[in-house]
Design a protein around this nucleic acid. Sequence first.
DNA 1: GGATCACCTGGACACAACCTGACCGCGTGC
DNA 2: GCACGCGGTCAGGTTGTGTCCAGGTGATCC
Lengths: 221, 221
Amino acid sequence: MTTRIAIVEDDLTLRLALGRGLREDGFDVVLSTASGGDLLAGLGDSAPEVFVVDIGLPDTDGRDLVLALRARGVRAPVLLLTARGDVTDRLSGFRAGADDYLPKPFHFEELVLRLRALVRRGHQPADPPDGLFLDLAAHEVGCDGKSAGLTPTEFRLLAALLARPGEVVRRQALIAAAWPAGGIVHDNTLDSYLLRLRRKLAALGRADAIVTVRGVGYRVG
Amino acid sequence: MTTRIAIVEDDLTLRLALGRGLREDGFDVVLSTASGGDLLAGLGDSAPEVFVVDIGLPDTDGRDLVLALRARGVRAPVLLLTARGDVTDRLSGFRAGADDYLPKPFHFEELVLRLRALVRRGHQPADPPDGLFLDLAAHEVGCDGKSAGLTPTEFRLLAALLARPGEVVRRQALIAAAWPAGGIVHDNTLDSYLLRLRRKLAALGRADAIVTVRGVGYRVG
DNA sequence: GGATCACCTGGACACAACCTGACCGCGTGC
DNA sequence: GCACGCGGTCAGGTTGTGTCCAGGTGATCC
């Protein structure tokens, strides 16, 4: 039984080596691109069951790519390749929705083991968050034709919400997803951003997309 | 003989270390997730015999997760990992239905000893509480298709009831489960919440789900 | 039947959680 | 310098939740 896998790695040598090695280990490499934009463009209905993404991409931060994937309803596990096991990288990547990470340089065998573990754990497909979608390249949110630009913080915040359609996301989880680790974020700051997001969504005719669940958090869909 | 165990820990390093260590000590790690939602989603029929849960999860309070597990009829013992042995945390964790706790940082050996003790003590599986179920992610109660949103206090209260289907739960036990430690709760306040819960359950066509046992307490199922 | 008790019900109220609009500081680009 | 966009803060208003009261209902016992 083969597992469909997608690779995003800008270094050509490494990308080719990964593809060859994974194929030999029984993976079905359905996509192999150098940039996040190419991945999103080429996804189609290839439905990879697991992703390997380099965090240090030239066109996109790997974390934003994970957020964009999650916002599209993709729940397949993502393994991030990070440079030198940097703790900050690891934490923020994890918060973005990645499922595992591997610091470079790594043993190929460990990569395969971790991938197998991720796939074994299993993930269920998510319902797509009706109509709304995030455009990573343009850094904006769209809904049937119309679209609205987002600032980086707004983007991360909305992505964290869209990643879990129908679920209540706690305020703490939103802060963890949208702001860098360690920093102190006023509760009210989150409120402000929710307001800004709601305004922009209202302009798309989706004023009610973000629902408040008092005492718990927020929900979309 | 191996014991099936599930781990919920958001810190990646610690999660991996726990998994590796427990495996070496003869446990069968059937589930290892970073969030409460993932755990509930991934449970399937893996039927862990014991749980290790970090109380400080970003998406869910560990205590709510225990309540949700109990409400699903899961009776397997739960060990909570708490930060710095905070007494308040410990007490409220116990009230939520946890069976043991361990303050961080801890010696790995102590964790294993406590887990073995918990498993040895033995627990029997519970009958699922007919039809009604708590959705931790959406923070609501559901019954064949329909669902109703719950406020935090309502959620804890109903969870305490659903945790013991068929059993009579005393008023004092309900107050202890649904309200923070130390606070003084008027008897009548509990009455009010029972009323609200019954209203919401009535909207789901389960008006008679909560039965009064005069002089003792309340029972569901 | 009447007294008593446990529980139910509707409503009033305070306060915390949340929303909203405005403001300020900082960095960037013109 | 100035304009602008972005991130963050503040003060004030609004609303839902939690709490408590007052009175009602039904069971139980004498």
